[in-house]
Amino acid sequence: MIHYILFDTETTGAQEEDRVIQFGSMILNQKGDLEVFDELCINPIPIKLEAMEVHNITPDLLKNKPNAVDTNFYKRLQELNRSENFLIAHNINFDLEMIKKEGFVNNYQLIDTLRCARHIFSELPYHRLQYLRYALELYKDEVAEAKKLNITIKAHDAIGDVLVMKLFLSKLVAQVKMSFPDINPMKKLVELTLTPVFVQTFKFGKYKGESIEDVAKKDANYLNWMMKNMDLDEDMQYTLNRVLER
């Protein structure tokens, strides 16, 4: 039976040395059965203050918690780690790299709801999960969903974000069914996850709001500087390479 594992992590920070301290997950199967996981875990890396500022997880909350690999979610993640199942997250590369530090070797089909959002809702200026929560009015359905599952929704809390992601995934599937009626929507989302997005405009920096192609024509040096000095995501790297090649 096919399973769909939606998950999110909170971590000690976003650097190479940082590790997982919270798992949030909802696991659904084809029958509609749902498993919910909301677990804190301990790791040897101190939590950075900047991370605490975002997720509000402090060291005292982790006392007597299990290691990441001993959580119920991680054990279930390993049990279902087969190619017929789907692993789903918003900006999945970040979360995947975090669980790889715990020894996880992926066999799932991957769906990145962030990249899929950039493909399918390209008209939106931003695709952060909390932005989508309001732009697509997901918040109107989340209270009833949270009450049904006995979940408290908080921004930048793993299980709260997973609940919003579940609602957003339903939107993605509906849009894919309309645009590609003859294709399995989950398979299409896997395909979109593997397809880089050409970013049209800058969302930050001195050229915020301007066309990247136009900036390439007038200030290619700035784009080259970005490539060398900034930590860019795959889509921005792909876009800058494309426009600089031209």
Rank of each mutant, 00 (worst) to 15 (best):
A155L: 08
E234F: 10
E191Q: 15
D161V: 01
V199Y: 00
L240F: 11
A174C: 01
A216H: 00
M226D: 10
A158G: 00
N184L: 07
K206E: 12
F198M: 14
V143Q: 08
L223N: 07
K187V: 12
K171L: 07
P185Y: 04
K166Q: 10
P181T: 00
Y238P: 09
K208S: 12
I151F: 02
D219G: 08
M230Y: 13
F198G: 01
S170A: 10
I159W: 01
A155N: 11
A146V: 01
E210D: 12
N221D: 15
E191M: 11
M236N: 06
G205V: 06
P185G: 04
D157T: 02
S170D: 13
K217E: 09
D231I: 08
W225E: 07
A144Q: 09
A220Y: 03
E234G: 10
T152V: 12
V143H: 03
E213V: 09
E145R: 08
V215C: 05
I183Q: 11
F204I: 03
K187I: 08
W225H: 06
V143M: 05
I153L: 07
D219N: 11
P185H: 01
Y207K: 07
M178T: 09
E213L: 13
D157F: 01
D233A: 06
N224A: 00
G160N: 03
S211F: 06
E210N: 13
L232H: 12
K208L: 10
I183R: 08
N184V: 12
G209V: 01
F168D: 13
L194S: 15
L149R: 14
E213R: 10
Q237V: 15
Y207F: 11
D161H: 03
L149D: 05
L232E: 12
L192Y: 02
T239E: 13
K177M: 05
F202Y: 09
E234K: 14
V215N: 03
T201Y: 08
